[in-house]
Amino acid sequence: MTLGAGRVLLLLGLLLASPATRAGGMACDSPPELLASHAALPATARAASAGSLRILVVGSASVLGPGTSGPGAAWPARLEALIRARVPHLALEVVTRGARGLTTAETGAIIAAELARAPFNLVLWQVGTAEAVRGLDLDEMVEQVNEGLARIVAAGADTVLMDQQFSRFMRANANVDAYRDALRLTAAAHGVPVLRRWDLMQAWAEADTVDIERAGRQEKVAATDKLNDCLAQAMQALIRDGVAEARGRPGQR
């Protein structure tokens, strides 16, 4: 218990400084408003205080880090490494499940199966890409997200959703905005934070931080690695913000 309290203090001291005020270009110079959770992550906060955190990452291809130098460079793996580096004493387990082109119904089913197998404190759910790209039914996606979120809440875990990746090609050839808006509103109605990958990646592309579509053939792998690392940093910042929110934000705002 005393150990736990010490760890909490460490967490608070280290992690709660607002992303914007942190020196050294936190989370790849992301716009700070995109790192705000706007919602609490109570289960995650409790688990972190208790010293053990189990995270489930589910999504389509991007959770596997396609185009990176290896599995260790995918954003879920980078996120795990970042949290470990920051809180070495935390008993952390990250389980990643995903495959190319999975729809929301399919990733929702994976989450249900994983939650039935073992408890998790935090589910990071990347949704909506397959629907937007293939022009699948918008209402169906929203319904599946509603069901999935209710299921995760019933299992006593927190959720962070992640929306579509920014791509000029996708923007030109698919009606992504409709799906992004639906996702954002659905998450908001449930009080669930969204890592707005589209907006983040667009901001990074505009600031020339990382832009995989404009990267030359030689730099593509390095750029994809950097993108995954930036996403992991942004996700970490968002989770910290949600944990701080759950703890009533001592010393903040």
Binding site: L138, D139, L185, A189, H190
Partner: peptide, 21 residues
């Protein structure tokens, strides 16, 4: 949109599901 969470759940869901289809 984060204000939606402050509304009662049915109202929030109603406002989040104003479909165009």
């Amino acid at each position: 949109e984060q204000w939606l969470a402050a509304l009662p759940q049915p109202v929030a869901e109603l406002l989040a599901t104003i479909d165009k289809t």
